[in-house]
Design a protein around this nucleic acid. Sequence first.
DNA 1: CGGCCGATTGATAATTGTCAACCCTAGTGG
DNA 2: CCACTAGGGTTGACAATTATCAATCGGCCG
Lengths: 230, 230
Amino acid sequence: MAALDRSLVSSMPIFAGLGPQQIDEALADARSVRFPKGSPVFEQGHEATSFFVLLHGHLQVVKLTPAGQQVVVRYVTPGEMFGIAVQMGRPTYPATATAVVDSLALVWPSSAWPDLVSRVPALAASALQTVGSRLNEAHQRVVEMSTEEVERRVAHALLRLVKQAGRKVETGIQIDFPITRQDVAEMTGTTLHTVSRILSAWEDQGLVEGGRQKIVVKDPHRLFALAERG
Amino acid sequence: MAALDRSLVSSMPIFAGLGPQQIDEALADARSVRFPKGSPVFEQGHEATSFFVLLHGHLQVVKLTPAGQQVVVRYVTPGEMFGIAVQMGRPTYPATATAVVDSLALVWPSSAWPDLVSRVPALAASALQTVGSRLNEAHQRVVEMSTEEVERRVAHALLRLVKQAGRKVETGIQIDFPITRQDVAEMTGTTLHTVSRILSAWEDQGLVEGGRQKIVVKDPHRLFALAERG
DNA sequence: CGGCCGATTGATAATTGTCAACCCTAGTGG
DNA sequence: CCACTAGGGTTGACAATTATCAATCGGCCG
């Protein structure tokens, strides 16, 4: 089991640069847990009792506003660390993570972190880099929302999804999990109606191919041009 | 000199929980540098050769888009660590930091970080928390830009400025550095025209008091109500 | 097979950006 | 010391994007 996990894990950036025995040490406190499609991994406001590394599947991370509106913060892809609220000094999770397909994650108790870091100091640097790259994405998104109109924001969001969760199919590259127009709207700060109109227009131009909870990008290059030049 | 710095620094969250000798150790590699109003501390895209702690003053951190539009990422207030790109695994600064008033900062060479962390492990946790809280702010901003109309975004931005850089004056609380309508627009993803209209309306209602590069919040409570309830 | 969730599309309204003109004042330099 | 100027601010008119409201369609899952 540990050996299986080690092979699953050794190629992941978080564990990059660790020796086999360090990986085993890190894995000692962890257990792997299955999260069926639709089930919550953790919920906004709850005590941050665990942190995670996703092994397989995809999670949607959502923030709920006081007024009840949702914003999709990001999607978690295999290899990523997540739920590291405590490490950042917050006692509760700042968002809700839900499995959008059947998923598998390594789970550590938050209390294991200090000990883990002292035994494997490189983990602290790993965590810092993880959070740093996430900060960068967030800032990028702020810049996009400040300076780009909706269509380009949707284009950027789609390209990001393609990079993170693209799977080759006959007609192009498909987002590898069920995703609705509403989801895309919540990623880009617009409404499902506007997203629907945009995707319809793109479909007419042969850029993408729609479907129920499905998006296939047929011409990534042209989509990229649209996102950049406008 | 070191003693002076230590007293300046010991109350700052980044150095919280460090003993006096640990603080001295951390300060050993640092020098303090003055940045006159208007001068750049570091620039977007340049090699991240240093990281910093602000001792006095205020910095504006700006991201420039390929199309030449600016977005104000945040303002740095005394006690904050900044320019920690290398620690997050990026070779260059992702934004430009400029002193908006005469400022003073501690400067470390980036190369000193690994050694520093090994001698003062608590710094790694400090840095992680700093980046974590910044990530939180960025996400908060994404949520606001996704769900709130301009007026409430401006209200939130003003309240944040008041908290970070508010100074009591007779008529209320003034932002303690020169700030233009354009700056506020670049913080909230709108135009200086819209900001000007909003501030004018608020001034008529006795909420704020305007002026050239000046904003005084006369009634923070009412502004807060406006930001929250809408 | 039926119901429901997701998607599409039209008509309309509202917010906010754009363009333009103008004012004001702080600071500069003669 | 005063005049001038440039940068910051204000305001109006108009346009455009995008949200809102409403109706309808269609295909999947139970």
